[in-house]
Each structure stands twice: as C-alpha cells, then as structure tokens.
C-alpha cells in the first residue's frame, strides 16, 4: 500500500528532526543539528533493510518516490517565498558579503575535491603510486 511508504518517510523525517532537536539542546545551539541529514540516513538504512527482507513492494516505494518527484516543484514554491526584496535592499555591503562568500565557496569545490582524492578512489591511488614509482 502506498500509505506504508509515505508513513515510513514520515516516521524517518520526524525521528531525524527530533534527534537533531535533541542534539541541539545537548550542545546548547538554538538550531536543529543535522535533523534532515539524520532523517535521510534513517530512510536509507530502513529502506535497504526492508528491501533485503522483501518487505518493500513497488506500491510502498511509490509512496516515497512521489515525494521525491515533487521535490523540484516544492523547491520552486520555496524560492517564491524568499525575501528577495529584503536581500537586494540590504545595501552594497550585504550584497558584496554574500557574493564574495559564494565565490569563495565555488572556488573551494575543485580544491577540496582534489585534496581528498588519492585516498578516496582506488583509481587515483593507482595513478598516484604509479607516478611515485616512476
């Protein structure tokens, strides 16, 4: 039944966000500590476990896949309620600070990608050892 999938997704979401809330209280931060991330990990493990035991049928999966598929429209609705006017009327300093932070972030992506690579993928490890032997 489709509702089983939706319910599984709900339980994982609620549990993850609840754990994030508890973590926030534990370390004294007024924010949710990784609630959505924890919920995602719970869903991945619950989904894999149920699939292995044969308890996940296509109907159940549809209950999760529907929500995954409406993700982009939901994000568009989210974009439509951003305070764009407020952001642009924040003045040149706020705009510059935001822009510089984004440029720094983009620039660091390839740098960090390169940094961890030798240990992360077998192929580049081979390439690495080949060059060191040469």
């Amino acid at each position: 039944m489709i509702i089983y999938g939706v319910a599984l997704l709900s339980i994982c979401t609620l549990a993850g966000i609840y754990i994030g809330q508890l973590l926030g209280i534990a370390i004294g931060v007024p924010a949710n500590v990784g609630g959505v991330g924890i919920a995602m990990i719970l869903l991945i493990f619950a989904g894999t476990y149920l699939q292995k035991r044969g308890l996940m049928n296509p109907k159940t999966e549809q209950g999760i896949e529907f929500w995954s598929a409406v993700y982009i429209p939901v994000v568009v609705a989210m974009a439509a309620q951003q305070n764009v006017y407020g952001a642009l009327s924040g003045g040149p300093m706020a705009i510059t600070a935001g822009v510089v932070a984004v440029i720094a972030g983009f620039a660091l992506v390839p740098l960090l990608d390169k940094m961890g690579k030798p240990v992360a993928t077998a192929n580049s490890v081979k390439a690495e050892s080949a060059t060191s032997q040469a």
């Binding site: 997704l9 709900s10 979401t13 959505v36 869903l43 989904g47 999760i64 896949e65």
Partner: peptide
C-alpha cells in the same frame, strides 16, 4: 520542503 528532501535520499 524537508519531507521532500528526505524522500530524495531513497
């Protein structure tokens, strides 16, 4: 939003 983001993890 959070519900849909979590769903993408499936």
């Amino acid at each position: 939003r959070d519900f849909a983001i979590v769903a993408t993890a499936f």
